[in-house]
């Protein structure tokens, strides 16, 4: 698997994979952690956790894509 992975014709596929998974990863991170923050806000009656959760989710999603594809 690793021998096949390094061949130059697979580079294009890897690159396309990475670029297409950026928006969905960021959206998923925002949805999960923003949603958690929103629920916390509802529970505690505050309005601070939702923005924090959104930003945290974006950062985590971006970190995930960067570590996964950017060697």
């Amino acid at each position: 698997m690793s021998a096949q992975e390094r061949r130059p014709e697979n580079d294009g596929r890897d690159f396309a994979d990475a670029m297409w998974s950026v928006p969905s990863s960021l959206l998923a991170g925002m949805a999960i952690y923003g949603g958690l923050g929103w629920l916390l806000d509802r529970w505690l009656g505050m309005s601070a956790f939702f923005p924090i959760g959104v930003v945290l989710g974006v950062v985590l999603g971006g970190y995930l894509v960067y570590r996964k594809f950017g060697r």
């Binding site: 998923a28 999960i32 985590l60």
Partner: peptide
């Protein structure tokens, strides 16, 4: 290829992004 403790935070993101967000987009 990721540090161990961070999987706890990242696994839900991967699941949501592959199972729900990808077909939606």
């Amino acid at each position: 290829g990721l540090p161990k403790p961070i999987y706890f935070l990242l696994a839900p993101i991967e699941f949501l992004s592959n199972m729900i967000i990808a077909p939606f987009t």
